[in-house]
Design a protein around this nucleic acid. Structure first.
Length: 762
RNA sequence: GCCCGGGUGGCGAAAUUGGUAGACGCAAGGGACUUAAAAUCCCUCGGAGCUAAAACUCCAUGCCGGUUCGAUUCCGGCCCCGGGCACCA
């Protein structure tokens, strides 16, 4: 009687062995080809969810596959540990954010280990530890010294009842999520990184990122949004002032029927001081979240300023309005309203009965050239991309390492005083921020704000390469491992995280910390694991904890199922059904490996062996294109085939089967490799290759189509030509009725696959 | 609203990228084994028509149209679902 398959026992055995042998610890080895495989690090929210399992299983499959190909593979793991949920937990359950975070990390780390992922834990990064964020503070100061950092006023969501700044996520239908109060946009001073200085390079290099999905490259291209247009000046009728608009359609200048200003435009604000109606309108416009999506769906509203601008060509007077759909962040905060050619302008014009002027559209480039010549316009390249606001009015984040001195202004904290540590608790004593100015020595105050957590996730991948380095942000090891060869993470990060990380890489390069231009050469954007049709998230309370599945079926079954359920890039609606099938397959594999005979060297040239290698060649192809779900189907086909095959192929087949499944279900394959007497350690075996002799055959099946419709098939010699195939088709009794009484016009042959006879009436 | 994806049996999906639509699996139904159940094994399984059964025919990849000998795949238009929209991560 066979020994029954007990996953937990098998998995513990192998996990213990791998840990003891430090199997996944790697060092720089110039003799071997390196491969850096990275999965996006998790936010330690409490438990792993199915999205994590999917992400990390894909990463582990690629890692173990590359190891079997003989490469020196680095696969690290860490924790994106700063963020809003820790503060919410602190408020709701009175747990300090640090305690909550570290407990979550301990729990989730256990879960990752239980799933058998091959990480080099020696390189673990936890972003809320001072050893990590001190280098972020150091780096920020370097950028400040280089002039890549500046401070300016910017809008935030303000909850007037709770008296706090709200994240966009915390604004629901324009109201604060806890207080229910109508939010207000409020202007406060904030730090910005000059990502726009890098806009051209970030855009141009997208063309070189051929290992990235086109989808992501397109999204980033559109996000950067480079557009060639013109600045056009409109003189005010009643004064010497001007309004400058940016337009990509200077050729529509003749169709202008109004000028629309953003409510935050300097002229709008100036008018508000004198005119109560305008003041009230601008105030009213503030009652909306700063999120672009919220503003884009607003009903269009405006107010007439009573002022007029002079049309630069016709000298006609054009009314100036303030409109809620004009964004201050884009262009100059003022647009020329051309209802005839622009949908939004048209909608606005219809609401306020502004004229819609008909005019012939002209060539844009020629018109701009002409307008420039007449001194009416100035060529301007504009980017949709805005500088990155990195200040957050929060406790649980990296403190901004700056000091505000009344006399000297803003001064960086001296390098030797880094790191600037977090306050001891969420409501620090008033004197906590008191300090002295490093320049003049007088009393001064430290910055209370912390950094956007996107900063931590913009360079963690580099820090993994230089673990335990206390004297520098990165060291020489970084250039051995970077860039990352394969990055895997959710499609929801297609723009923000991946663009910021690219930006940071270029900043680190320009500060001579690394030499490469881009951080990630290949990117796999895994589809989201959905529950009830929506993204699994803690705030929606629809996460699924894999804990019970692992307990019931074991890690290999969970890994196998999540890989089998859908191709990596597609969304996956979660359902527990189907896990049973994965478990059943592993039991059948277990039993088969115990039953199959050990035979020395038969290698018969039979049909099963040919099929075995046909399936294998497909599997090897699927590994290369990372379509792992069909690797699993292929493995199932091989097992089905072997169970029906002659004993002579069974051991050869099993050896192949275990090796191609090993990256997906490593524990059971390692165990069965020993059981089947194939060796002590499956990782010492080479990756399977195709035996061409097994595939050798002289004949081939050809699909027969008549007028493009499949009507049967014929067997013919390999590489058969038109004449041979025609003869075979005409000789086939089954195909007679499609041929009789018809005239052959044309024969189309797809080599070794198909023949199509195009026929008509005689 | 704007940008990017997706839509194929009851369900997850496949189709080596323009050439056999539905591989592989789940669920379901029937059978074998069993005192019984579980487990396991075998068979059926998109729809309609025609059959005693097979064979065969037609329809079918969100909807409408186009290109092609041939379209799930390419092009145009629409509908629905998901992701992102700069302070969720």
């Amino acid at each position: 009687m066979d020994k029954p398959y007990q996953p937990e026992q098998v998995e513990t055995t192998w996990q213990t062995r791998w840990e003891k042998e430090k199997r996944f610890r790697v060092t720089e080895d110039i003799q071997k080809k390196k491969f850096y495989c990275l999965s996006m690090l998790p936010y330690p929210s409490g438990h792993l969810h199915m999205g994590h399992v999917r992400n990390y299983t894909i990463g582990d499959v690629i890692t173990r596959y590359q190891r079997l190909l003989g490469k020196n593979v680095l696969q690290p793991m860490g924790w994106d540990a700063f963020g809003l949920p820790a503060e919410n937990a602190a408020i709701q359950h009175k747990i300090p954010p640090a305690k909550w975070t570290h407990e979550n990390i301990a729990y989730m780390k256990d879960q990752l280990k239980r799933l058998g992922f091959g990480y080099d834990w020696d390189r673990e990064v936890t972003t809320c530890n001072p050893e990590y964020y001190r280098w972020e503070q150091w780096f920020f100061i370097k950028l400040f010294e280089k002039g890549l950092v500046y401070k300016k006023n910017a809008l935030v969501n303000w909850d007037p009842v709770d008296k706090t700044v709200l994240a966009n996520e915390q604004v629901i239908d324009g109201k604060g999520w806890r207080s229910g109060a109508l939010v207000e946009q409020r202007e406060i001073p904030q730090w910005f990184l000059k990502i726009t200085d890098y806009a051209d390079e970030l855009l141009a290099e997208l063309d070189n990122l051929t290992g990235w999905p086109d989808q992501v490259r397109t999204m980033q291209k559109n996000w950067i949004g480079k557009s060639e247009g013109a600045l056009i000046k409109f003189k005010l009728d009643a004064s010497k002032e001007n309004i400058t608009v940016f337009t990509t359609r200077a050729d529509t200048l003749n169709g202008v029927s109004f000028i629309a200003l953003s409510p935050q435009h300097a002229l709008s604000l100036k008018l508000a001081t004198k005119n109560k109606d305008i003041h009230n309108f601008i105030d009213h416009c503030k009652n909306v979240s700063t999120a672009e999506a919220a503003q884009a769906v607003l009903e269009k509203k405006g107010i007439n300023t009573g002022l007029y601008a002079v049309h630069p060509l016709t000298q006609a007077l054009i009314p100036i309005w303030i409109a809620n759909y004009v964004l201050m962040d884009y262009g100059t905060g003022a647009v020329m309203g051309v209802p005839f050619s622009d949908e939004r302008d048209k909608e606005f014009a219809e609401i306020y009965n502004l004229p819609i002027k008909d005019f012939p559209e002209a060539d844009i480039q020629k018109t701009i050239a002409l307008l420039v010549k007449k001194h009416v316009a100035e060529r301007k390249t504009h980017y949709r991309l805005r500088d990155w606001g990195v200040s957050r009015q929060r406790y649980w984040g990296t403190p901004v390492p700056m000091i505000n001195c009344k006399k000297c202004g803003t001064v960086p904290v001296p390098e030797k005083e880094l790191p600037v540590l977090l306050p001891p608790n969420i409501n620090p004593p008033a004197d906590f921020y008191e300090t002295t100015c490093p320049t003049c020595g007088k009393k001064a105050e430290r910055e209370k704000d912390t950094f956007d957590t996107f900063i931590e996730s913009s360079w963690y991948y580099a820090r993994y390469t230089s673990p335990h380095q206390d004297h520098a942000m990165l060291d020489g090891r970084a250039n051995y491992w970077l860039p990352v060869d394969q990055y895997i993470g959710g499609i929801e990060h297609a723009v923000l995280h991946l663009l910021y990380a690219r930006f940071f890489h270029k900043l680190m390069r320009d500060l001579k910390l690394i030499t490469s231009d881009e951080p990630f050469t290949h990117l796999l954007t895994q589809g989201m694991v959905l529950k009830n049709g929506a993204k699994m998230s803690k705030s929606q309370g629809n996460t699924v904890d894999p804990k019970h599945l692992i307990q019931q079926y074991g890690a290999d079954t969970v890994r196998l199922f999540i890989i089998f359920a859908a191709p990596p890039e597609l969304g996956l609606e979660w359902s527990d059904a189907g896990v049973e099938g994965a478990s059943r397959f592993l039991k059948r594999l277990w039993n088969a490996a115990h039953d199959f005979p050990v035979i020395a060297k038969p290698l018969p040239a039979d049909k099963s062996r040919q099929q075995l290698y046909e399936i294998l060649s497909r599997i090897l192809f699927d590994y290369e294109r990372k379509q792992f779900n069909t690797v699993v189907s292929g493995a199932m086909k091989i097992l089905n085939l072997l169970l029906e095959s002659d004993k002579t192929v069974q051991q050869e087949g099993l050896s192949i089967l275990l090796r191609i499944l090993f990256p997906i279900t490593p524990h059971i394959c390692a165990e069965l490799w020993q059981v089947a007497n194939l060796g002590d350690d499956i990782e010492k075996a080479s990756w399977p290759v195709i035996d061409e002799t097994a595939l050798h055959s002289t004949t081939q099946q050809f699909i027969v189509q008549i007028n493009g419709k499949m009507r049967g098939s014929v067997i013919a010699v390999k590489n058969a030509n038109e004449a041979v195939l025609q003869k075979a088709v005409y000789a086939d009794p089954h195909l007679q009725k499609f041929i009789d009484g018809k005239k052959l016009h044309k024969i189309i042959v797809v080599p070794n696959k198909l023949v199509n006879l195009v026929m008509g009436e005689k």
